[in-house]
Design a protein around this nucleic acid. Structure first.
Ligand SMILES: [Zn+2]
Ligand SMILES: [Zn+2]
Ligand SMILES: [Zn+2]
Ligand SMILES: [Zn+2]
Lengths: 140, 140
DNA sequence: TGATGAAATGTTATGTCATAACGTTTGAGG
DNA sequence: CCTCAAACGTTATGACATAACATTTCATCA
């Protein structure tokens, strides 16, 4: 163990492999794509990848993109570092180049929390994903 | 054809069957659940359901819940009627009872549009889904 | 140090969601 | 009628995710 009060935990071998694959990728990867990339490192079965992903998501190092059924390494918008327990974030996903931008809009989060409060809804997680074209890919 | 300028189109047999199943349901249904419910009506294959769903979503009569891989009949928050071309809406999904509430928060949409504008991102669709417990299911 | 229990791992099989590819039917408009 | 686009039917396949069970790892502590 490497002490720590509440920072990023030590990763196991499989977790480190999966996190490495996601960190090195340009865009989101599916669990099976990750698996294919890690065959040479000894991974054989989807469950090995899914188990690592579950933990990485729990640690806040990786995010799942619900509208893509895929995963990306956390790329925190300026401010705190990845892995720091962070609140609700949003993603903009380019359908042309596959690029994903992670961003935080506190006003959006506050508004949704406001709605939840007035409705008595107790949110445990919030998904915000924009689909479209990024600046580079949008027509002039 | 029944004329119309831009209202809800006539549904084909399969579309009507699928829409009926969703309208009668208490919560979201997966395509395969819909299929099972419509076997007696002659539906045999997933594609028959998926094709109908594609159209119903296009018409704005049905929404796909990305975080559930399931579908719900549009249940517009007070204002205009289902099927009226409507903008971005959000969903609150209860993990206990399965209930789904569709709501519109114009400020949220505006704020996300603002972000997109400043980043040059051209959004074509937006997913907003809260997961948690509805008022009835939340602990006292 | 050696028992022990929680967490991680390995492996096989299965379940669930979605689409490719192809041919046929339907029906409005010319 | 003819034609063409849209909807339909069917089989096969691809893509995403988990159940179930046996084994290993390793920090903790008697
Ligand atoms: Zn993040
Ligand atoms: Zn792009
Ligand atoms: Zn709606
Ligand atoms: Zn509920």
């Amino acid at each position: 163990m490497t002490h720590d009060t509440e920072s990023t935990p030590d990763l196991t071998r499989n977790q480190a492999l999966v996190f490495g694959a996601l960190s090195g990728a340009e865009g989101p990867l599916s669990a099976y794509t990750i698996l294919d990339q890690l065959r040479d490192d000894g991974l054989r079965a989807p469950l090995q990848v899914y188990r690592a992903l579950d933990k990485l998501v729990e640690f806040g190092l990786v995010h799942r993109l619900e509208s893509l059924n895929a995963f990306v390494a956390c790329n925190h918008p300026a401010g705190d570092a990845p892995g720091e327990s962070h609140g609700t974030v949003a993603f903009a996903i380019c359908e042309e180049c596959g690029g994903v931008t992670e961003f935080a809009e506190q006003d959006v989060v506050k508004r949704l929390q406001g709605w939840a409060r007035t409705e008595g809804f107790h949110a445990t997680s919030t998904v915000i994903e924009l689909r479209g074209l990024c600046e580079s890919c949008a027509p002039a």
